[in-house]
Design a protein around this nucleic acid. Structure first.
Lengths: 345, 345
DNA sequence: CGAATGTCTGTATTCGAATGCATAAAAAGG
DNA sequence: CCTTTTTATGCATTCGAATACAGACATTCG
């Protein structure tokens, strides 16, 4: 039996194209790129080159180009949790903008884990990307500063707490949004005993949202009853655990503010499983407006962020910096929230 | 005012390290890599080099390395819908395996759109990656074959219908899983009139799941009533639309098999909004077991895929091919499903 | 003690495309 | 008709790391 091994042709290079077209390699480069020199190429040569490109199915080798130009046409993006629906429109928006600029996005996921955030930055150091968008949960300004200085590429983060001249910041004004929503709960809903399910303070949104709550309570002459304060870790399960703890207190608040929807849904489910009615016994207010918020019954009232807007702001800021390297000061962009009243309040 | 511009130091290269250590650039390369030549480096030189690396904070430049070695240590992965929870564990599993092999994953998202699938492949052609994992919804064997031949890199797909010697296939035996689940619905649940919410036939899972249903009905002496067949597009909204159409028929089936959970949830919500009870009036069976399945009330009975297992199989197959380029025939891996009975049936 | 072997390191080249510089041919100007 | 300018293209080099090959020196052996 004859072993007909198909010739494993190597990918054609510019040099191959040049030979076929009877020109030099740089000429091919000039035809395919839009530098000023490329305007000078004669029509006839151009046609021959393009025909050769077509015939060989030539594709430029991005690696070689990157090495020469020192640009990779790639940005890296780190989100905190791929399972969290909040990040999907954000990632999509970034990819949409990137595509307009002919950039690719290297998407990663930290799962809120400190080591993963570092690992991502390490990757960014050795795998040259042109810019970085990230959602740092644990990394501090110092950590990021060190990376930024080593890479000399622009960073844009979704994190108010980062304060570094070479890092732009997008953040959500959740303190104010929380304040407004709680004031509404008090004035419109008549709630006086409001519980709180948050996260440990080292998670960035924790303190801001709690402060919004506390400010609203204070301005209404109320205060946060420590018995009704619980901590979770963003997951639905931890929301359930918080609700169980709450039901152990011996008394229930008339409303609970839960700092993300997933935990809020956990709270609703746990309360219902224990025989309580939402919002009859306890009203529940979430934060995020994830798709699941309209799947639970009662549907979840929540403070909606606009993740697509956040993504657009992140990407726009980054590409502005990529195009204007002279930008040298921290810029801050704010994305707003709005209260969506559904059935759970 | 003096303008103190910080010296924008360029990233150090191997050459810089070499100069500082008083050796040649290749020596640095040998110290940092584990080729056979690197064993011969004297301890003293090695220490000097490592000290220089440390002092300069040197990181190898991946682009240069890739150009020389013709390997990028990167694989590309295309999923069909980033919002679909089914894909998250799959992507995670792939990333976990990739990390073991010291590879990065370039993650993309087609949103079920034909052009995006092509765009992804085009990217793969020019941006050298070492391997590809994808979920092709629209691309045919011919489309993929063309790309595979141009790139000479291994592809692994989650799609039974692709049949090409250089493409490994992972698939879910959903025909059989559907068959078993429907038989169970009939024998245990006593259902005789079973409706169906599917997707157009050009979506791969459509035909297989319908065939499983039809075979089960046939083997029970039943058949699929065309009045109870509906088509959606995987979204919750389209599930709602299907349910509304179903309620127009004038008669309801006693059970509906919906080919994905998101649509199944839409069916449940629409039925409830119209005042029907699930499973009292209509039982609903989904497919996928996404997190939302335990959030709806009643919780959704469904056929669970094991996305992590699928991801592991995809990644394992790919890395096997990367390590054994001599593999030349299509390999098929099957991931199994299991019925999860909850409250909706 | 000379040849053979082994140990360690340097030199030169390569990967594929971009680009500064040189130059040939054609067009314009005097 | 010869210089100057313009037009169109080629030559040589570069990006940063990997690697084939060569060579210097030390060691071993007959």
């Amino acid at each position: 039996m004859v072993n007909i091994t198909p010739v494993k042709r190597k990918r054609p290079t510019m040099y191959d194209v040049a030979r076929l077209a009877g020109v030099s390699q740089p000429t091919v480069s000039r035809v395919l790129n839009h530098t000023e020199a490329s305007a000078l190429i004669s029509d006839e040569t151009r046609q021959r080159v393009l025909a050769a490109v077509e015939e060989l199915g030539y594709r430029p080798n991005t690696v070689a180009r990157s090495l020469r130009t020192q640009r990779t046409q790639t940005i890296a993006m780190l989100i905190a949790d791929i399972s969290n629906g909040f990040y999907h429109p954000m990632a999509r928006a970034v990819q949409d903008v990137a595509r307009q600029y002919d950039y690719e996005v290297l998407l990663s996921n930290s799962d809120h884990v400190y080591e993963n955030e570092h690992h991502f930055c390490e990757i960014v150091l050795s795998r040259p990307v042109d810019g970085v968008i990230m959602v740092p949960i644990h990394l501090t300004t110092e950590d990021l500063g060190r990376y930024v200085e080593q890479t000399h590429i622009p960073f844009v983060v979704l994190a108010e707490q980062i304060d570094h001249p070479n890092i732009d910041v997008v953040y959500v004004d959740d303190e104010k949004a929380t304040y407004d929503a709680i004031r509404w709960l008090i004035t419109e809903g008549g709630h006086q005993k409001i519980g709180y399910v948050g996260v440990p303070d080292f998670y960035p949104p924790g303190p801001r949202r709690r402060q919004g709550l506390e400010r609203a309570l204070k301005d209404s002459g109320l205060s946060l009853d420590p018995r009704f304060m619980f901590e979770g870790d963003f997951t639905l399960e931890s929301g359930k655990r918080a609700a169980h703890a709450m039901m152990q207190v011996g008394e229930l608040p008339t409303a609970v503010y839960v700092i993300n929807d997933l935990m809020a849904i956990g709270v609703i489910l746990a309360l219902q499983e224990a025989g309580y009615s939402v919002p009859g016994d306890v009203a529940v207010l979430g934060f995020d407006d994830i798709p699941e918020a309209t799947i639970v019954r009662p549907t979840l009232s929540t403070i909606a962020q606009d993740p697509r807007d956040i993504g657009l702001k992140l990407a726009t800021a980054l590409f502005e910096r990529l195009e204007n390297p002279e930008i040298k000061e921290r810029r801050v962009f704010q994305s707003s929230c709005r209260l969506i009243v559904r059935e759970s309040t």
